[in-house]
Design a protein around this nucleic acid. Structure first.
Lengths: 347, 347
DNA sequence: CTGAAAGCGCTTACAG
DNA sequence: CTGAAAGCGCTTACAG
């Protein structure tokens, strides 16, 4: 480090105020208790000395001496501030910033992590992870070993998004797709639909299982369902729909829904008048030939805020008692009515 | 701070490897010199002990002991990650992230700064400013007193955007609008324009002076110019244009250009066939009745990258020698041809 | 080649 | 009510 000429310490303040360094520290941290009782006069003297100087406590020293730093780490497996990732990270980062503001915390982005196979590494020789009181983990996929190690080390952290990469009990805040899926099916049944096809990507992620579980659940039994794993080639969709006599297609996500609609129309099926379509995921901004796609809305900012709140709880709680906390939280996605699920027209 | 049960230190590693803690530190930091010469065998033993453990150096302790932290602070006077500010900050933050990655630095966002009169305060009792090796300052307007204090304290920092709030020599990276303004005028002259009106907002910011200086400079003398300060009411524009016999309007920014076009058209003047229009500012994304607005493009990401590079130089250089550095840098805005400045049609 | 010791600036028992 | 002292985990002269 270059010299720090202007650096002024507690000792200096103590000298000016004519007290001990200990007293300065006490005043600074508002320590008041059975043992300490600093008269207002002394207190004022110290405070004035601080005001007149440019003194600020060295956070490194504070931290080393065992105090919180009010710094929350933010780790993403890929760049968080690039234009491409803004779509996904933007609302989350916004929520994190607002949460940090209310908690009075600064945010440390671990942009120095070495990149390997296109992903940043959380643990590495020079990680500044420990400078933070705790850490928020962001990313579509995470490394199971990282999660386990964090849990092992009792480092306070919260992952955004449901996690099951590992057996360890990973604290997270995720989205519940099961409840709104059932809600969506309810609505479809009300509109007269009796048979549906579920088109998914054949992935085995937590949320994919979540959706599939809901689609196949007894709660959805009022609707006869057929499941179709979409390969690149969606030409089979129309055939499946016809064979099943379905009037509704549920697609795993909005992009898939768009592709499905294209395939259906190519095969002469009308959407939504012939076949209704919905996505079991975020649909804001997605339109099907001018009509708002039916599906869900995910309050991503709120997920982040909730993650920060949970992290704060972990930081404030001794690791031994973490088990008593509710460390795996789900926020339900909202139903987004849209205009692509319409009343069933009798054939 | 909550207990850190898993925390493993250099002393522990030293015990395992059967060496002194000093040696561990030496190995960790690749210290090799006249005085130290650690045999490969010892080195390997230490490294292995580290590998097998989950050891990472405590950054707080490192910092306290006098080393760089590879942490760069980022301060904004208002929220940086909100949807509204993303338009302005997005490209800058992206540039900062990329710069930090290449420098191997982490980024500390000072989101904890108390808000006063709607603006965050840079200096306050618990500022973690000093945890960073240096700081990037972002914002349309900054506090002159803050800038002065940073300069006084010899704290390495760089402001993004040209600065003249204070007499102190503030390090900054800003945009040069003068050169491209002259370039734009050259182009207009080539296209046969002889008379122009400059419409501005009557502000007295550095960049406003910059543009106005260029418009009124001898380099622009080939074009007869009239200057008009736009109040809310732009109805005067058409009259001024007619009175001056102008075939070109230069507006201070793209939004003003749009308003001007509206006013001209209302008064029966055709744009661009009757009157050409350009903005002396960023025009990407601005269209005038389907035609791309002529003006500039500002590579904001590059401004940020340059600011980070300058900051790194400051950090690496002793304050006494900062004067020898080029600490006030301007990047020229690019000319954006657009389609709203066209060949002059003889009346 | 290696380690004991001092010191970075702070906090917190502990002893007056 | 107040201060001397130990200690946080690390780095770097310094002395073997």
């Amino acid at each position: 480090m270059t010299a720090k000429p202007g650096k002024i310490t507690q000792r200096e303040i103590a000298r000016i105020a004519g007290v001990s360094q200990t007293t300065v520290s006490m005043v600074l941290n508002d320590r008041e208790g059975s043992n300490v009782r600093i008269p207002e006069a002394t207190r004022a003297r110290v405070k004035e000395a601080i005001e007149r100087s440019t003194y600020v406590a060295d956070p490194a020293a504070r931290r080393l001496a065992g105090l919180d730093n009010q710094i929350i780490g933010v780790f993403t497996y890929e760049p968080a501030l690039s234009p491409e990732s803004m779509d996904f990270y933007g609302p989350l980062l916004n929520g994190i910033e607002r949460g940090a503001e209310t908690l009075g915390c600064d945010l440390l982005f671990f942009t120095s992590s070495p990149v390997e196979d296109g992903k940043r590494k959380l643990f590495h020789r020079k990680t500044r992870l420990r400078l933070a009181d705790g850490c928020i983990l962001l990313g579509q996929e995470m490394d199971g070993a990282d999660l386990e190690r964090l849990v092992d080390e009792r480092f306070p952290f919260v992952a955004v998004g449901r996690r099951d990469e590992t057996a360890a009990r990973v604290p997270y805040v995720g989205i519940d797709y099961a409840a709104p899926t059932v809600g969506l099916i309810d609505r479809a049944v009300e509109l007269g639909h009796e048979r549906a096809v579920y088109v998914h990507r054949g992935r085995d992620t937590p949320t994919a299982r979540d959706r599939r579980g809901a689609v196949e659940s007894p709660a959805a039994d009022r609707l006869v369902r057929t499941t179709l794993a979409a390969d690149e080639d969606l030409t089979a969709v129309a055939g499946t729909v016809r064979a099943a006599g379905a009037t509704l297609v549920l697609a795993e996500d909005a992009f898939l829904a768009e592709d499905v609609v294209h395939a259906l129309r190519t095969e002469g099926l009308d959407v939504p008048d012939g076949v209704s379509v919905a996505a079991l995921a975020e649909v804001r901004g997605h339109r099907i030939g001018g009509r708002a796609l039916t599906g869900f809305h995910v309050r991503r900012g709120q997920v982040a805020t909730e993650a920060l709140a949970l992290l704060q709880q972990l930081i404030m709680t001794a690791p031994e008692e973490w088990d008593t906390l509710d460390t795996q939280r789900l926020l339900s996605a909202d139903l987004e009515a849209g205009e692509t699920v319409v009343e069933r027209r009798p054939a």
